[in-house]
Structure formats: structure tokens, C-alpha cells
Amino acid sequence: MEFFLQQLVNGITLGGVYALVALGYTMVYGIIQLINFAHGEIYAAGGYMGVILISWLFAQGFPPFVCLGAALVLAMGYCALLAMAVEKLAYQPLRQSSRLSVLLSALGMSIFLQNGLMLTQGVYDRAYPTEMVQGGFELGTVMISYMQCIIVGVTALLLVALNVLVYKTRIGKAMRATAQDKTMSALVGINSSRIISLTFAIGAGLAAAAGIMVGLYYGSVRYDMGFVPGIKAFSAAVLGGIGNITGAMLGGLLIGMIEVFAAGYISSEYKDVFAFIILIAVLYFMPTGIMGENVDDTRV
């Protein structure tokens, strides 16, 4: 039981991070049917922006929560702008082209950004000041570190904020409308270009936050850190039902849980295999994912 609970805590932490990254994939796919390969790199850029800001702020003697808060806000902002720039330069000019062209453009962007990170930040791992947040507490026999609390807390906060934005505000309504029917939403007065740009920005902001928390949790970042979590997060989005925001959150948590439990009860070396077996099994019985797809497939 103790083992189970400990793995549960680990799974929630990992799953939360996947969920944050998965949202960016799902939102972008939902709105323009693009698998944004560059999303993993945005997450890595967030991790790097975080290490630069946190190291500097921490060295200036600011308290940990100030460092973390400021770094989160600034890195999220930076990555939002970066993603908007990517969209404007690499995807928007191809809006009328075939989906394959945009997909290739996304692949190219991913390579460009990853190599850019390598050139500017070097090939070595970059250390986060992990001494900033240390220790933890035992809940019964389950060990919970403060870092895990922060990750779960920030993730929950961001997910709630996203839900408020999407379901309770006019901008959220415009986003949902654009995802359902781009032409129609333009005809009720929504600037779809702006909404698409905004969707990229929001997804990137969430990914940046995930990048920072992963960096703090594992202690370091590297230029190629975006690749594997990117694939896992995309799988999570598909598992939950691509285009579906609730689905991405659920899918992220599930993939995290499956990985941790497969590693805990079966074998670490097969954890990815299990994650993907479950993905395939779910898609076999529920081709549109657990929560159902939500994609604009209408044409004028």
C-alpha cells in the first residue's frame, strides 16, 4: 500500500508535467490541425530561460518563491512571444497550403530551435540551483518532497487558470468557436489569425512552466530535453482525444501514472512500452481518444 501511494504521488507529479505540455499540442491541433513539432523545443527554451533567470535571481539573494514566481512569469512570457513568432514566420504563410507543407515547416522549426539552443547554450547540461527548494515531509510512510508540492501546485493553478480562460471568458469562447468552425467564427466577427496566434502563445506559456519545473525537479536542463517529453505529451493529447482540453489534462496524468506504475510493478525498462501499448489499446477501442476529438473539420 505504501509502495502504491508513493508511486501515485510520483505519477501525479510526472503526469502533471506531461499534461501541461500536452495542452499546447492539443490546442494547436484543435485549431489548425497541425502537429506542432516545435512545441517540445519551446518547452526546452522555457527550461533554459528558467535556469538563466532563477540562477541570476537566486544569486542576488531573492527568496526562493520570488525567484520561482518571477522566472515563471518571464519565461512564460518569453516563450509565448517565441511561439507567436514561430507561428507568424513558419506556419501562417502556409495557412492555405497543404497540411503536409506546414508539418514539414514545423519539423524544420523544431530542428532550427534545437540547434539554436545548442549553439547559444552549449551541449552540456546546465544545472538549476536545486538547493533553492529542498527537503520534504513524510505523510504516513509516503515521502513527498516540497519540489513535488510546488510542481503539483503550480500545475493545478495553471490548469485552473486555463479552464477559467477557456470556459468563462470571451476570449475562451472565441478560441472554442475558432476550433469548431474557423469560417463561421470569422463570420461572427472573430479575428481567427489573432486567436490562432493566441493559442500558440498560451500553449507555449504552459510548456515553459513545465520546462522550468522539470529543470528544478531533475536538477538540470539540456538543449535536447524537449524531444522525448514532446513525444510523450503528444501521445497524451491523442490518448485524451486530440483537440480536447480536458482530454489532454487527463491523458497527461494517465501517461504519467502508467509510466510510473509500469516501472514500479513491472519493469523500468518497459515503462515506455506500456505507455504506448495502452495508447494503442485505447485508440483501438476509442479511436477518438478517451474524451473524444474536438477538431474543426468543416470546409467552406
Binding site: F3, Q6, N10, L14, V228, A262, S267, E269, K271, D272
Partner: peptide, 20 residues
């Protein structure tokens, strides 16, 4: 004797076993 994947960063599952 456990195996993890090359490049993994999350060892929490294995470590929970080791701890036990």
C-alpha cells in the same frame, strides 16, 4: 537488478523499489 532507459531523468519508480 533493474534497468532504466538511456537518457531517462525520472527514476522515482525504481527508487521507490530501492527504498522499500
Amino acid at each position: 537488478h533493474e534497468h532504466v532507459n538511456q537518457g531517462d531523468k525520472d527514476y522515482s519508480a525504481v527508487l521507490t523499489k530501492v527504498k522499500a
